[in-house]
Design a protein around this nucleic acid. Structure first.
Lengths: 181, 181
DNA sequence: AATTACATGTAAGCGGTTACATGATTGT
DNA sequence: ACAATCATGTAACCGCTTACATGTAATT
């Protein structure tokens, strides 16, 4: 039962925004958490319903177009707090890049180099996106959290660093292959 | 349809080992790929059955205790090759650490620091394990791939680098929090 | 009038985890 | 005899993706 991270992400967003509809949360997901976790509306709506049943959120009001406005309850706040303070991250994230890295020696070195090169191009594009986001955040005022740090900046920093590390790894791997052809 | 990475991992292992039973593959998973991808026997046995039906592997022989020995077919080899050469890695891996990082500003800085510290301890332990594995691999002769590189070394290198990066990030995040208390 | 954006849901199917279930062989 | 390991499978449940389905309000 203790993975349930969609729940946690939603509680986090509700804490940050105060109150929001399922639609708002879906959009907020796309804009922010999406770099770290994905979820579509078809997953979010039923989850909000379950969370309402579990008393973690409530329907505060119903607006135009059937819009339901949710807010977090004290129980929800407690659940979020408990997760943040007590959650032990489970085993290594399953990463397709890592799997590709694992299997790469099965290719001959010329092909392996081509794969790494393609991977690099892909990652460079992503890195540029993340860096642009970073710049934008440091120019415009953002959503503030309890400790005054902008919401999501730490995660963005982590993402950028990991991308750079992976790029460096790809470079070194290519260099190594080159020496063994 | 194009995620299917368990299939790919199994084909990769079968290529490396030549032939193996479902049991062997399950054990091999635990020992090697597990740092990158997890799968239990309850997933592997049915998948091998499906792969047999799809002509990617064949039951080469049946040994003692109902042991079925699988080997890869030319079609299987082709499938693996196509994936390695052609697979575009999809969006960012969903990582629990990253989600925690994202939500961390919702805690007050003392608590956030404690969470980061716990995360660090956890990651330091994992890093030590990975480094021990690295040392072991450089001492003992390992499984060799087509290009002469030891199978899985590239992935292990990537894992170690990412772990170090994440540790550095945690240190810097703690330092930042310290300055804001 | 037509299109876009808002807004909410359900259903099918897949991948993955945990637990259940069974039995043979080897080592102590 | 008993335990551990070998060896294979099934069932229930959950999380996630894709697609289906419906309707309202604002914009052009």
């Amino acid at each position: 039962m203790w993975v349930m991270s969609l729940r946690i992400a939603l509680l986090g967003l509700l804490t940050a925004y105060g109150s929001a509809s399922g639609y708002d949360l879906t959009k907020a997901f796309e804009r922010s958490v999406a770099h770290v976790w994905q979820a579509g509306h078809s997953q979010i709506y039923p989850e909000l319903a379950k969370m309402t049943a579990d008393g973690l959120v409530t329907v505060e009001a119903e607006g135009a177009r059937g819009r339901k406005i949710y807010s977090i309850t004290p129980e929800g706040r407690e659940e979020l707090r408990a997760w943040l303070l007590g959650h032990e991250p489970t085993g290594p994230a399953r990463s397709e890049i890592a799997l590709q890295a694992f299997l790469l020696p099965l290719l001959e070195s010329g092909e392996a180099r081509a794969v790494l090169q393609r991977l690099k191009t892909h990652m460079e594009r992503r890195l540029t996106e993340l860096e642009a986001l970073w710049e934008a955040r440091h120019a415009a005022p953002g959503l503030k959290g309890a400790s005054g740090v902008r919401f999501g900046n730490l995660a963005l920093d982590l993402g950028i660093r990991q991308m750079r590390t992976t790029l460096q790894w790809a470079d070194d791997a290519i260099a190594q292959l080159g020496g063994q052809t």
